[in-house]
Each structure stands twice: as structure tokens, then as C-alpha cells.
Write a protein that binds this DNA or RNA. Structure first.
Lengths: 138, 138
DNA sequence: CCTCTAATTGCAAATGGTTCGCAATAGCGT
DNA sequence: ACGCTATTGCGAACCATTTGCAATTAGAGG
């Protein structure tokens, strides 16, 4: 939470209780959507507004502390930005496996004369568990 | 257009002029958004409604003829589904390079015990042209 | 061909996620 | 502590997409 205040000061932004609460919540969970964040946050601060959630999410995104995901759903998901990583989504149980493919992807880009800066990757398929449990999946 | 009618009949769906028009348009362009499709289609049929565009897009998506893309923007993009391919988006000129990474990605998934069925991939970076033209990009 | 009926369309209104305007509140540099 | 300015909460606005409904039409069967 404290390093965040450095990021904020650097841009003349303020560290409000709402912001630390939200960042804290995002950091202790993976890929939440705005409404889930809102509901979790309200348990701590019932007066918090949804606009503040969205405004904070956008701020944290600009600061590079949080990443916005497009997991195929209509609405966005957010998660604390650690090292870049990618998602393997199981079509059977819905589990989202995180992994680092950055170097491999950079190499794939290079083969097309492309210099990769960042990657959004979502592989859909079946995780080891589901593959074991039943061969009845499509 | 004609093979489409087979897909449709198979589900008791009808091949209307609106549907062939829309499928035609999607097939002759790459990654259009709903509104672009709407505007192009209206040049042929000015009475066409936006709802029909969306309804048709959803239908074609279910039939597997069209694919919905989430290119980081707020709204969706659509394109005719040919062979699976992936996108390299240039941060400088906005060009979208298409390429096939399927087998490579399957292999990356395998390393995590994951059986990949399909992949959505968007690498952001710089294309060869932009890299050449100026080293003034971020 | 003509008829009948269920599928489809266009329209307008509803929806759901996200943003914005504004007056009230509250960080934080001094 | 003070004051300036960023931030909040609220409600309304916004935009992409969906839906209800009455009018239209594709296409199977006669």
C-alpha cells in the first residue's frame, strides 16, 4: 500500500482511504470484475460509491498498478499487475490458470518482424484435472 | 454465401437478404465493429436496422461463421472465421497483422498440462515498418 | 404457384456496464 | 491549523448491446 503512495504523489494524486481499500482488495484476489470489487469494498466501507470504484480502477490502470482484462465476457476484469502473465481458461471447470509465456510470445512475434511490447493471451481448453475426470467433454 | 444456407437450414433458420448482405460484408473485410458493419450494410439496404446487425452477428457467431474479437477497445469487432489466427497490433500505426500461431500456442499450453482448444491472442508492439521509420516511439 | 405459419425484421424502449457534472468533503503542502 | 485542489458520492448521462412487439416474409407443404 505504501509504495502506491509514491506512485500517487508523483502525479499530484492523493492517497485516500478508498484508494488503499480498493488496491488492497485487488491485490488479495485475482481477476475480479468491477462489481465484485465494489461488493467486497462495501463490506469495509458501505458508503463507497461505484463511481469511485471505476475512477480508482482507471487511475490504478494508468499508474500501471492494475491491469484490465478482457476475458471474453461483456464486462472487464481487473487484477494487480505483477509480472506480465497470461491465462489458460478451462472450458469445463472455468478455472483460470496463470502462466508466463512472455519470452515465448516475443519470439513468435519476432518471426513476423514484430517487436512485442506486451501480450494479452487467453487460451481456451481443458485443464489437467478435467481432462482426467472425464473424457465426456467436447 | 451458399454454404451458409446449409448451416442455416440445419437449425431451422432462414436465409434472409439481410443475413447474406451482412455475411458478405464481413467476409470481404477484416475485424469490423458492429457500427462499421451497419454503415456499410446501409449503403446496400438503407432500411436495415442496427438490431438486425447485432442479431445476425450473434447468429453467425453461434453458427461458427463469424468470430467476435476483443481488441482491447470497449466495443467488439467481428470477422469471418477462416482458419484460426491471431493478431499483432502495432502501437504506432495501429496496423493489425494477422498470423497463425496455433501449433506454437498449443505447445505452450501443453507445458502447463493444458489442452488448448482455441486461442485469443493479441500481441501489442511495433511492426517492422514503424520500427524502421522512427526510433522516436516509446 | 398459393397458403400458412413460424422465423425474422424494424422500431422504440429497456438494459447493463461505465462515465460525467456538480456540490460537498477531505488530503496534504505550507 | 489553513487553504487550495483533488476526490468523493450522488444521480443523471452515455454507449454498446438486447429485447418486446406488431408487421413482414421465407420457405415447407399442398
Amino acid at each position: 500500500m505504501l509504495e502506491a503512495s509514491a506512485f500517487l504523489r508523483a502525479e499530484k494524486k492523493r492517497l485516500t482511504p478508498q484508494r488503499s481499500l480498493l488496491l488492497g482488495i485487488i491485490r488479495q484476489h485475482g481477476h475480479l470484475d468491477a462489481d465484485e470489487i465494489y461488493r467486497l469494498a462495501r463490506r469495509e466501507n458501505p458508503r463507497l460509491s461505484l463511481s469511485t470504484v471505476y475512477r480508482t480502477l482507471n487511475l490504478l490502470k494508468e499508474l500501471g498498478l492494475v491491469e484490465e482484462l478482457h476475458l471474453g465476457e461483456e464486462h472487464h476484469h481487473y487484477e494487480a499487475k505483477a509480472e506480465e502473465h497470461h491465462h489458460l481458461v478451462c472450458l469445463s471447470c472455468g478455472k483460470v490458470i496463470e502462466c508466463r509465456l512472455t519470452e515465448d510470445l516475443r519470439e513468435l512475434g519476432r518471426r513476423h518482424g514484430f517487436t512485442m511490447v506486451s501480450a494479452q493471451v487467453e487460451l481456451a481448453g481443458y485443464c489437467a484435472d478435467c481432462r482426467k475426470q472425464g473424457e465426456n467433454d467436447p
